[in-house]
Design a protein around this nucleic acid. Structure first.
Length: 274
DNA sequence: ATGGTTGGTTCCCAA
């Protein structure tokens, strides 16, 4: 089973690229982020006409995630628990960043699609993120994600959590790590929160298959980042132990960044023996 | 250090 995660940076602006990609690359499951669309405005038909099932969790203008699958998407849930008081201004969390569904091949696989908060600008009060700030929201969201991972791990079934984590795990995952030292994507607190997820026993699929620097999934639109290959690797697959047993391959579809009107992210793929 | 680009709730914000 071929599964891809792809931050498309706006489904309306990216629809031609998305349709061509679904037709040509033909993932069994696509996990999308930054659809930037309400559910009612999502261009369902173009995707369903290709024979795909579709589940969205959107909001107007920002964020938004979706699952696209050749197999039925079962037991769909939207949002992360622990929303109470978790918003950047202390309100309930209305940001559409998380969706889950189960697909059944040879065995059942729970798929968790996520768009983790960016977290900039970083506001600190000494060693503590300022409560209610964007960085505080990011770190609290990661704790909520860890809680969900713990729940799923108890079931001892295959699952994966994939999407735009907005985390540069290590210096080798950036062309210019020193430019990111104070950024919410690379600060020590962010990387520690990511390690806490991994330390539950999850496998980062790409690093289970590929070693060394120079592998990126995002290049900024600005300052000629793509032409200089000035990228960062922030789109990840985390696999449960039972899912990691099924991992055949993980790769980054770098070519997607070279076409006209690209997203600033490219798809990351896993091949699972399901 | 700065500036640069893209998409969307567009004359500003988020990334």
């Amino acid at each position: 089973m071929q599964i891809a995660t792809f931050n498309i940076n706006g489904v309306k602006a990216r629809l031609p690229i998305l349709i061509d990609w679904l037709r040509d690359a033909a993932p069994d499951v696509a996990i999308l982020q930054e659809i930037k669309s309400e559910d009612a405005a999502f261009p369902r038909e173009a995707i369903e006409d290709l024979g795909y099932n579709l589940e969205t969790h959107g909001q107007k203008g920002f964020n938004g995630v979706a699952l696209i699958s050749k197999l039925p998407l079962e037991d769909v849930t939207r949002g992360l628990d622990g929303a109470e008081g978790a918003g950047p201004k202390g309100e309930d969390d209305i940001q559409a960043r998380y969706i889950e569904a189960t697909v059944v091949g040879k065995t059942a696989l729970r798929i968790c699609g996520l768009y983790l908060p960016n977290g900039n600008p970083v506001e600190m009060d000494g060693d503590t993120p300022v409560p209610g700030g964007k960085y505080d929201y990011k770190l609290k969201w990661m704790e909520r994600l860890r809680h969900r991972a713990q729940e799923l791990l108890k079931e001892e079934q295959p699952f994966l959590m994939a999407g735009d984590y907005n985390i540069i795990p290590q210096a080798e995952d950036a062309k210019r790590p020193d430019a990111w030292r104070e950024d919410a994507l690379f600060r020590p607190e962010s990387r520690a929160a990511f390690r806490r997820l991994l330390n539950l026993g999850l496998t980062e699929a790409f690093r289970a298959r590929v070693r060394g620097p120079g592998h990126y999934s995002f290049w900024d639109y600005q300052a000629g980042a793509w032409n200089r290959d000035d990228g960062i690797r922030i789109d990840h697959f985390l696999l449960s132990p039972q899912c990691a047993d099924l991992l055949r391959d993980c790769r980054i579809e770098k070519d997607m960044r070279a076409q006209d009107k690209p997203s600033d992210h490219v798809p990351v793929w896993v091949d699972l023996d399901i």
